[in-house]
Design a protein around this nucleic acid. Sequence first.
DNA 1: GAATCATATATGACTTGTCCTATAATAACT
DNA 2: AGTTATTATAGGACAAGTCATATATGATTC
Lengths: 196, 196
Amino acid sequence: MSLKHAVLGFLSYRPMSGYDLKKAFDSSVSHFWPADQSQIYRTLSQLEADGWVDRETVEQAARPDRHVYSITESGTEELQAWLGTPLPPQDDREPFLIQVFFSANRDPQQVLAMLEHQRDQIRVQYAFYEQMFADIQAGTGQAADKQAVFYSMLTLEYVLALGQGYLRWLDSAIDRVQRGDFTPRHPDMYVTGDES
Amino acid sequence: MSLKHAVLGFLSYRPMSGYDLKKAFDSSVSHFWPADQSQIYRTLSQLEADGWVDRETVEQAARPDRHVYSITESGTEELQAWLGTPLPPQDDREPFLIQVFFSANRDPQQVLAMLEHQRDQIRVQYAFYEQMFADIQAGTGQAADKQAVFYSMLTLEYVLALGQGYLRWLDSAIDRVQRGDFTPRHPDMYVTGDES
DNA sequence: GAATCATATATGACTTGTCCTATAATAACT
DNA sequence: AGTTATTATAGGACAAGTCATATATGATTC
C-alpha cells in the first residue's frame, strides 16, 4: 500500500495528526497522490497496528483532542526499505481512451467536439500545474533545503512532462479528424540518451 | 463504471461470451484498460440486470455452456449517450513519484539507481507498445475498416506519447542528479496550436 | 502415462479508495 | 443574529478491482 508509505514519509519529517497529514497531502502531493481524509485516518490505525507509528493524545480546550503520530524505529526502517524497493509496473487506466476506442461509428463532428473538450480540460490542468511550479519557484529563497525542494518540484515536472505528451497527442488527433485523414502516425521518435 | 461501457462497446460489434470478451480486452485495450476475468463476468451480470444486454445460453458437448451476451436497444442507447458524455477529470496515481518525493534524505547514488531502474522499465514498456504499433500497421491491409483501425491505433499513440514524456522527464532528472545539480527545470514549453 | 493447455463460468475473500454522515466548539464573516 | 469556516476524528455503506480457487473435459505436449 503506497499510502502507508507516503504517510510514513511525512511522519519522518515531524510528528503529525491525521488533520495535519490531510493538509500536507493536499498541499504537496495531491497532483500524483490525492488522499481521502477518512482513508488517512484508517491508514494511521493500520500503521499503529503495524508498530510503525506511535500515537499520543494531546488534549485541547474547546477543540477535539489531537492524536499525534510519530514514526517509530521500525517504521523508519520500513520506509527506507520501501524507498529502495522497485515497484511493479503500473497499469494506468484512462477512461477517456475507451471513448476514443469506440468512436469509429460516431459522427466525426461529435468525436471532434469530444477531443477538443478533452484538450480544454487537459490545458486547464496543465496551466494549473504550471502555476504551482512558478509559485514554488518564486516562493523558495535560497534558505530552504535544496534537495527537498528539488524532488518536490521534480514531481511537478513529471505531471507537466506527461501533460505535454497528452496535449501533443490531442492536437495531432484533432488535426487528423478535422481533415478526415484517418491515418495512424507514430509520434515523433523519442531520441534516447546513452546508457549510463 | 467505465468497464460496463467498454463491454457494451465490444458487444456493439457482435454478441460475445465472457470468455470472448476477456480475449478481446487483452488483445486490444489492455494498454489503457486491463480487465480482470472475474470482473468481466460480474459486469456482465450487472449489465443484464440493467437491461442493457440479453443473455443466451449455448449448450456445447464436452465443454461448459457458453453464455452469449447481445446488446439490447436500451444498451445501445446507453452506450451512445455515454460516448457523448464528458468524463470528470481523472486523478492519476503514480506510486513511483512517492518514492521520488521522499528521496531528499537518501544517498544520491541510490536515488540514481532508482531512477535508472525506472527508466529501464519504462523503456521496455515503450518498446513493447512500439512493437504493437508496428505489428498492427504491418498487419492491416487496405481491406479493414479504416476508422476502426485509426481509433484503435490512436490509443496506442497515446501511450507512446505519454511514454515519451515519461522518458524525457527521467533522462532530465537522471542528468541532474548525476551532476549533483539540484535545480528545478520547467520542461520545454509546449507550443500550443491555434484554437479551432 | 502424466502434465498442461484451452475452453468456459463463477464465487469468496480481500484491498484500496470514495462519499456521506456524526460529533463538537470557537471564530469569523455578512 | 445566523450562517459558514476551521479545527479534529471516525465509522458505515458502497464501488471497483485483484487473487485464488472450484468445476469440467478434450486435446496436445513431454
